[in-house]
Amino acid sequence: MSEAQNNNKFDFVYDFYSKMKESKVAIAYEGEISHEITKVFSSLAESHIAIDNESNTLKKRVFHVMIESLQNLSKHSGEKHDPKSATDGQGIFFVSKTDTEYTITTGNVIDKYELPGLKLIIKKINSSDKKSLKVLYKEQIKKGRLSEKGGAGLGFIDIVRKTGEQLIYSFFDINEKKSYFVLTSTVSRIK
């Protein structure tokens, strides 16, 4: 590898480090999200969070949001190493921590035809108050069986119910068939 190429790589690493510090990112990962990876991150977070003497409820909320986010990634990412696998999708996973909140961010490729449905669900959840979220949750939990991916359709509803914060999301165009979906969940440390 040429010196210029090496320098580029070093710049990238330092740049990445600086940006992570700036955005208070505590965990950053890009790659396959398997069940094993999900377990590793959640136990990592548990031990990190434990150091800061957070309340048991808050610790569990962060843990919970992390698990549901990672499981969404592994089940719904449109990018897979093994296309036959129902789980183990590819994705980006970030956890940031400031004085006031934790944010858990995921990014993954999705098929464009899934966009309208996804937007509709998130908008519906975001515009629901506590009471209607409860109704939504009960409707969904009572509804039939699990999907073939093993999802109960409860992840988003549960995140918003537990955190009391809206989901923040954005889509980026990759090509005519694919988009990149970024989703952030917030867990407040102060209320």
């Binding site: 698990i67 549901e68 499981q71 939990i141 009572k142 699990l146 093993g150 109960a152 409860l154 549960d158």
Partner: peptide, 12 residues
């Protein structure tokens, strides 16, 4: 101590 949403369905 903890259960995910997929488990919540099976608990029901």
């Amino acid at each position: 101590e903890y259960f995910n949403t997929a488990s919540s369905k099976l608990l029901l």
